[in-house]
Every structure is written in C-alpha cells, then in structure tokens.
C-alpha cells in the first residue's frame, strides 16, 4: 500500500541508515531537500520485500526513487494515473545495477540518456565579447522556445515565475539579430562552478554559430566566479556533443539514463 510520508526527520534518518548499509539507490537529495518534500506532502512510499519505492508527485508525472538491498530486484509497480519517470545516475565505468533489463521486466522503457561534462576555467581561451542578458520583455519568447526545445519529463524546466527570477538575476543570456531572439542560454551557480541548465537556438538560426557564441558569453559572464563549467548533454545529440567537445569539455564519467513507464 502506498503511504504518504509525514515525518521528515525520521525519513532522513532512514535514508542515512539505508545508505550506510550499501543499498542501491537513485535517491541523492540533501537533508534540506528531503525535509521540504515531506513538508509539501509530495512524497509517498511503497515498501516491499528487499526494498522500498519513493514516489515524488509532480503535475503530470511521478518520479520514482528506490532503495534496494544487495542482490534484491525491483518489485512490480502498481498501476498509477500518470507516467512514472525513473532517472538514475551511475558511473560509465561501472556496471549499472539494477540493470536496464531488470527495469524493462517491470514495464519501463528506455527514454533517453545524458552524460555530464566539465571544462576547467583555466583551460578556456576567452574571447572579447559583450554578453547580452535577457530582459523581462522577452520572458514569454524564451519560455516558449524553452518548452518547444526540451522534452517535458526530465529537462528540469523552470516555471515561468522561476525563469523570470533567473532573468532578473542575470542567469539567462540571449543572442539577438535585428532585435529578434535567435537563442538563449540558462545557467545556474553551484558551489563547485557554473552549471548550464538549458541552451536552445531557433531552428532557422542553427548552424550559424549562435550556440557557440552563447557558450562564450556564459564563460565571460562567470569568468571571475566559476572555476569550472559543467553541463549535462543528451548522448543522442551529436551536434551538441561535438560543440562541447570542440570547446574542450570532457566527460567526468557520470551518466544519467532516464526510463519511463506509461499508464
């Protein structure tokens, strides 16, 4: 039976205990994030022999997290009203456990895969450019291009309000021609460096170096703050992979496959 979680501290203590026992998991939230999820009533659990599932409820989907004891397999999932998204992170050099096949046996299908790449700031040849930050007037245009360019289930798309905040705080760069938007780059600052969240170029402006210009703008915008630039890129997007490799980005070994179980 699926039960809603109501005590964040108890839940966090359970997480730490499970981690110390070496259980397999895709649950990598911080204590603060765990407490918020419980407080908002967004997380529920389903216990089974050898493990537990946690479901995080979002508007049109459930995100699935699990803990599995050693040698145990995932249990069949109950039928839910919305698609279930399973996103994992593992090292490319290590065997993926549970395997893709194991998840397919209980109804999941491969959806996509991303890998993480990084570039140390000291290795960047900065160009002389003047980065253009987005303004509130083109919020709608950027929001539309963002939602047209990315798949809806695992792209961490911001709400319009969150995007507006990022625009106001100068975390969205744009490329314009004759005052028309050609593309944008949305980034965030983390303790370890600057993370590229979304980059998109209008279909008719592709192949003109707009994306490369936006990357250079990002480097310049965070030149004095970030020691490292990071991003996740879909492994089925060769043009993007080529562009990042050309700029010196290297894989750090982290791979994130995403699977989906539809109703």
């Amino acid at each position: 039976m699926i039960k809603q979680l109501i005590d964040g501290q108890d839940f966090w203590a359970e997480i730490v205990k499970r981690l110390s026992k070496g259980e397999k998991t895709n649950f990598f939230f911080s204590e603060e994030e765990v407490l918020q999820l419980v407080q908002k009533g967004k997380i529920s659990r389903l216990d089974f022999d050898g493990g537990v599932y946690f479901f995080v409820t979002e508007e049109n989907l459930y995100r699935l997290y699990y803990f599995l004891e050693k040698e145990k397999s995932p249990e069949v999932l109950p039928r839910l009203q919305q698609p279930i998204i399973l996103e994992e992170v593992h090292l490319a050099t290590k065997e993926r456990i549970p395997s893709k096949d194991t998840w397919e046996k209980i109804g999941f299908q491969h959806y996509l895969e991303r890998k993480r790449m990084y570039l140390m700031a000291k290795n960047i040849a900065f160009e002389e450019r003047e980065p253009s930050f987005a303004t509130e007037e083109i919020l709608e245009e950027i929001f539309l291009l963002m939602n047209e360019s990315f798949e809806p289930f695992s792209s961490a798309l911001p709400t319009k309000e969150a995007l507006l905040k990022d625009i106001q705080e100068q975390r969205v760069l744009i490329s314009l021609k004759n005052q028309n938007l050609l593309g944008f780059l949305h980034f965030g600052d983390e303790k370890q460096g600057s993370m590229l969240w979304h980059i998109a170029v209008l279909p008719q402006a592709r192949g003109l170096g707009v994306g490369e210009g936006l990357l250079q703008d990002w480097f310049l915008a965070r030149k004095d703050i970030a020691k490292k630039f990071m991003l996740w890129v879909r492994t089925d997007n060769p043009p993007a992979l080529r562009m990042y490799e050309k700029h010196g980005f290297l894989p750090d070994g982290r791979v994130a496959p995403v699977m989906i179980k539809t109703t």
């Binding site: 981690l19 070496g22 990598f28 939230f29 911080s30 090292l91 983390e190 303790k191 370890q192 982290r254």
Partner: peptide, 18 residues
Amino acid sequence: DSGELDSFDIVSLVGELC
C-alpha cells in the same frame, strides 16, 4: 563543504570504500 563532492559521490564512495 566546497561542493566538490556531492551526495552521489559520497554514496558511491561509501560503496567503493566498503
């Protein structure tokens, strides 16, 4: 504390060290 290692790293590291 500087954010270089995140929770995924710690979980992976615990498994490797054990």
